[in-house]
Computed example of a mutant assay.
Amino acid sequence: MTTSTTTAAASPPGFREALAFEWTKFTGLRSTLWTTAATALMTVIGAVFVGATGSLQPDDTVLGGSLTLSVVALMAAGVVGALSVCGEYSSGTIATTLTAVPRRGRVLAAKAALVSATLYAVGLASCTAAYLLGDAVIDGSHPQGDPLPALFGIAAVFALVGALGLAIGTFVRHPAGAVTTVIAVLLLPSLFGPLFGDLQRWIAGATPTAALEKLTQTSDAAPDTVGSLGAWPSLALVAGYTVLALTGAAVALRRRDA
């Protein structure tokens, strides 16, 4: 009886316990809470702005116009993911985390599950609210767009970018460097794509922002600009390399000192 009790006491925390630890840290860190709030508010503010200014092009959809600032919100989502791990490195609490949960892969999996689920919920709620608000204030002469199931895919992009930010933060470990890298990954392919000639649409089309533009059905998401993949294949591509990035981050976390 004593031996079994000792073994049970020495066993590492399970995934549920690790997830509870991560939730406590996530909600106790001001930077992640404020950035998550900013992620939620940006799309709604964008819908109000577009409706008030009447700045949409004739072929822009109500859905796309309502989510004009969703790309900015997407960058904030990536920052949330990066800060969820970099905040621990900058404060030194990562050593405590890895002592409490020695299985480092479990720590990263718990962080990824928490960040992804939180940002999926935030993305779905805020983008739905922005669309409903935009539908009420945007000129009815614009085509409506198809909000369903697109809004679920848009929320998934937010979740994936948060997980991608987490992977980048695990590699970089420094908050400023990780935030800069996240923004660069999201923006630079679109900015520098024209320098690559005919390859532009494939370089720009592989980014999370391209998947977002296709799901929001914006007039800028033409095949010659962001690739010929449809919205859902683009989302699947983003999911694929996000999983690869998290796998690499897990390997790096296991091999490096805290």
Rank of each mutant, 00 (worst) to 15 (best):
E22V: 02
G46W: 09
L33E: 07
R16N: 08
T24Y: 13
Q57N: 14
T24P: 01
L33V: 15
A40Y: 10
G14F: 10
V44K: 12
L41P: 08
G28I: 01
T32E: 12
W34T: 06
L41D: 06
D59S: 13
T39V: 15
Q57G: 15
V44Q: 07
A38W: 08
L33W: 08
L41A: 15
A47Y: 08
L19K: 00
L19T: 06
L33P: 07
T43S: 11
R30Y: 10
I45T: 09
L33H: 04
T39C: 10
A20N: 13
G28K: 01
G14A: 06
I45K: 07
R16M: 06
Q57C: 02
F15Y: 12
D59H: 06
A52R: 13
A40L: 09
K25H: 02
W34Q: 05
I45L: 14
G51V: 00
G54N: 03
L33C: 07
A38S: 14
K25P: 10
W23H: 07
W23Y: 13
W23E: 01
A18H: 10
V50T: 07
T36W: 10
L56S: 14
F26V: 11
T24M: 14
A37F: 15
P58E: 05
L56R: 10
T43A: 11
F26M: 01
S55C: 05
A52W: 09
R16T: 14
A40D: 04
A40V: 02
T32F: 05
Q57A: 14
F26E: 09
M42A: 13
T27M: 03
P58R: 00
L56N: 04
L29F: 15
E22G: 00
T24H: 15
F49G: 09
M42D: 03
G54V: 01
G51C: 06
L29R: 14
F21G: 04
M42N: 00
G46R: 08
G14Y: 15
P58M: 03
L29Q: 14
T39A: 04
F15V: 10
Q57R: 09
T27K: 08
S31K: 00
T27S: 14
T43G: 14
G28R: 02
T39S: 05
G54S: 05
A20W: 02
A47L: 05
S55E: 03
T43W: 03
A38M: 09
